[in-house]
């Protein structure tokens, strides 16, 4: 796809972009029950961005985790943060002035390579809204380091760094 999904936000500094849930579904291959990001904003393509994931009691993992005490598993919080990273990556391809290869951009989404020293500071429960943020760091070969954070009402729920692969394996 070559058309831009959204208009750039008008302010000084680098152009930032916002993506609705419908936009994100065109960018990521993920679907229910594994689509863990509802919205993205302040995205500087290929560099950084923020996102939102609303946590609802209706999510499948709450049925088992735990039946009488709903706690969002830490690894699902990591998954939300990782999906924000994927959106930031795909945004780089979409918003680039360079002609992109034909085909689905969502096929360019890579994989999680490493979860490094992620801390979970606060339990996340139904009704919480996770505000996600990601800052992409140095890269080497097909790998990129990323710093990520998730907050609820301004308090850090999870933070740490990930390594993601940039693109699908051959």
């Amino acid at each position: 796809m070559t058309a831009m999904l959204s208009k750039p936000d008008t302010k000084t500094g680098p152009a930032t972009f916002s993506y609705s849930s419908d936009d994100i579904k065109k960018m990521l291959p993920h679907r229910w029950p594994m689509l863990m990001i509802d919205r993205a904003y302040d995205v500087i393509p290929g560099e950084s961005g923020k996102g939102v994931k609303s946590v609802s009691v209706n999510e499948p993992f709450f049925a088992g985790h735990y039946p009488d005490h709903s706690i969002m598993p830490g690894v699902m919080i990591v998954e939300s943060m990782a999906q924000l990273v994927a959106v930031i990556y795909v945004a780089e391809m979409l918003e680039s002035p360079v002609e992109q290869p034909a085909g689905d951009v969502s096929e360019q989404v890579g994989y999680l390579g490493a979860i490094k020293s992620v801390k979970f500071n606060k339990l996340v429960v139904p009704g919480d809204q996770l505000v996600l943020s990601a800052q992409l760091g140095p890269r080497l070969g097909g790998l990129r380091s990323v710093t990520v954070k998730a907050t609820v009402d301004g308090q850090t729920a999870a933070s740490g760094s990930l390594i993601v692969t940039t693109g699908r394996a051959g």
């Binding site: 490493a114 760091g137 140095p138 890269r139 080497l140 070969g141 790998l143 380091s145």
Partner: peptide
């Protein structure tokens, strides 16, 4: 491994 090498890149940076 390659994941470690990226860590070195970040450290050197």
């Amino acid at each position: 491994d390659s994941l470690d090498s990226l860590e070195i890149v970040v450290m050197v940076n």
